[in-house]
């Protein structure tokens, strides 16, 4: 340590980077979000090669590297089974709920991949294997949070 530091301290420069973005959701994503917003329906799409149904829907099947066809669109859920879950114990400024709440991955009925969202209530009943259903918000704007949460059945 330099000798002058005996009587001084290292300074700290505080700052913040806040950068606005306007991400295009794209054609596939828009169709999905419009389904949530206007019809309270969760849409997936199915690969006609391997048969996997994706939710959120995709442009192509990553496994087959094959376009997902227009006639592959279908409603999945709104019910499904929890494949993993965690009750969050600490508040985060980024989370859509106050702690405690839970993150879940739900295998929606009719889908072949997991769908990530939150559970707010009855957390003591939450476990891998329980059935849940999507609960929609009254005011919807075409966002993943148009689904308020999943409720335990």
């Amino acid at each position: 340590m330099a000798s002058w530091l005996e009587n001084e301290e290292i300074l700290t420069r505080k700052g913040q980077i806040a950068m606005p973005y306007a991400w295009s959701v794209g054609e596939v994503g828009s169709r999905f979000l419009v389904g949530l917003r206007d019809e309270k329906r969760i849409l997936g799409n199915r690969c006609d090669k391997c048969g996997a149904t994706y939710v959120p829907p995709r442009k192509n099947c990553g496994v087959c590297f094959h376009d997902l066809p227009d006639d592959g669109w279908r409603e999945v859920g709104p019910e499904g089974v929890v494949t993993s879950c965690t009750v969050v114990r600490e508040d985060s400024p980024l989370a859509p709920a106050k702690a405690p709440f839970a993150y879940v991955i739900v295998k929606l009925d009719g889908a072949d991949v997991g769908f990530m969202h939150v559970v707010r209530d009855n957390l003591e009943k939450l476990a891998v294997g329980v059935r849940v259903a999507a609960r929609f918000r009254e005011a919807r704007e075409g966002s993943i949070l148009d689904i308020d949460s999943f409720v335990i059945l």
């Binding site: 980024l94 993150y103 990530m116």
Partner: peptide, 25 residues
Amino acid sequence: DPVYHRSLGLDAVSSSALQASAYMS
């Protein structure tokens, strides 16, 4: 993903907790 997952507030710890849940069960 900013469209589907970021607004859920997931981070390294909470996402890993989901993996721990899946693995342990």
